[in-house]
């Protein structure tokens, strides 16, 4: 009984894992990593181009009260009088090593300033993405498989309302209700775990609607695919089919969507941090733009781009884990 067809003994673990396989090909990883590098390089180039199209970059990097002579001196110090290709290479090098100028405001290295805030932004963004996705999945699933037919439209209608509400407006409504009227939660800042509830709630409300819509549409599509008929022909229970065959297959497009949405989520994080005075990268960036503190702005932009690229890569990998076909070229 414990011999395989060729008479060899086989253990339980080996039998259990005999059908499993991580479907990620080396080719795919190579291609995506290459793509990620290009993306980061592209972002840096865009920033570079803009800096130079607008005139003398030294103007941005000098304090507002600087005199033309000081600006010229700064220009020379940064090497802005060098030929453009040289500057480009220098720029790329500086970006890669995190060597940004000092903040005009705090006079500390810009990169450090930004880096310090990353954990805060990460906390809110990541939690909101996860919570929002879970909510969206639940809403989407219920919209298709909910037990009571006329209640099925409810989750999607709620989602639609949420999607039409700008994040900042939703934030203020939540503050109005939960902070000012009910006094359950603070209006902003940090301190306790209570301070993080509203920011995460607001950002989750940004993520959830498109997830819900796509998931329900995806489920409907997968339901009609032929392999579901095969599953029925095998005699599996409807419940098993709905979850293991339909829902999980529909999941791959949702994960892909979340990957694409990371950009929007980061943008939403900027707004949310601003409304709730949450000390993250976004809040710093907006403040710096208003204060014309360019080194910090640049550092923040590059860091956000890096985060975006990494998040996209992770999302892509997750898509493949769910649907191995996605590796093939479009």
């Amino acid at each position: 009984m414990s011999h395989d067809v060729e008479g060899r003994r086989i253990g339980w673990l080996a039998a259990r894992t005999a059908s499993l396989r991580i479907p990620i090909g080396g080719e795919f990883l190579l291609r995506r990593t290459f793509g990620a590098l290009i993306a980061v390089w592209g972002a840096a180039t865009i920033v570079f181009v803009m800096l130079f199209v607008s005139g003398d970059p030294a103007v941005f990097l000098a304090p507002e009260t600087a005199s033309p002579a000081q600006i010229a001196e700064l220009s020379h110090a940064y090497g802005f009088d060098q030929p453009i290709p040289v500057q480009y290479v220098n720029f790329l090098w500086n970006v890669t090593t995190g060597n940004f100028p000092k903040s005009l405001y705090t006079d500390r290295p810009a990169f450090e300033e930004v880096l310090r805030r990353v954990p805060n932004t990460l906390a809110v963004s990541l939690s909101a993405t996860i919570i929002g996705t879970l909510l969206g999945l639940a809403a989407g699933y219920l919209a298709v498989n909910g037990k009571i037919p006329y209640l099925r439209v409810l989750p999607l209608r709620v989602m639609m309302v949420l999607q039409s509400t700008p994040s900042f407006f939703l934030a203020l409504i939540l503050i109005l209700f939960f902070s000012l009227t009910l006094r359950w939660l603070p209006t902003g800042g940090t301190g306790s775990w209570l301070h993080v509830v509203l920011p995460i709630a607001t950002l989750s409300a940004y993520v959830a609607p498109s997830v819900a819509r796509l998931f329900s549409a995806s489920i409907r599509e997968v339901q009609f695919e032929e392999h579901i008929q095969t599953a029925r022909a095998m005699g599996l229970s409807e419940r098993r089919i709905r979850i293991r065959h339909v829902a999980i297959n529909a999941l791959s497009s949702v994960v892909a969507l979340v990957g694409l949405q990371v950009g929007g989520i980061l943008g939403g994080a900027v707004i949310v941090e601003n409304v709730f005075a949450w000390p993250g990268v976004g809040e710093l960036m907006v403040r710096s733009v208003n204060n014309r503190d360019f080194p910090v702005v640049l550092a923040a932009v590059m860091l956000i781009c890096l985060g975006y690229v990494v998040a996209s890569l992770i999302a892509d990998i997750m898509v493949i884990l769910i649907d191995p076909r996605a590796q093939e070229r479009r």
């Binding site: 980061l266 702005v297 923040a300 932009v301 690229v309």
Partner: peptide, 20 residues
């Protein structure tokens, strides 16, 4: 199009508006 996608929308807008 891909390269443009590498900077999140709001962030790019902030940058451009800050500069220009």
């Amino acid at each position: 199009a891909d390269i443009q996608m590498s900077i999140p929308g709001l962030v790019l807008a902030l940058l451009v508006l800050a500069i220009f």
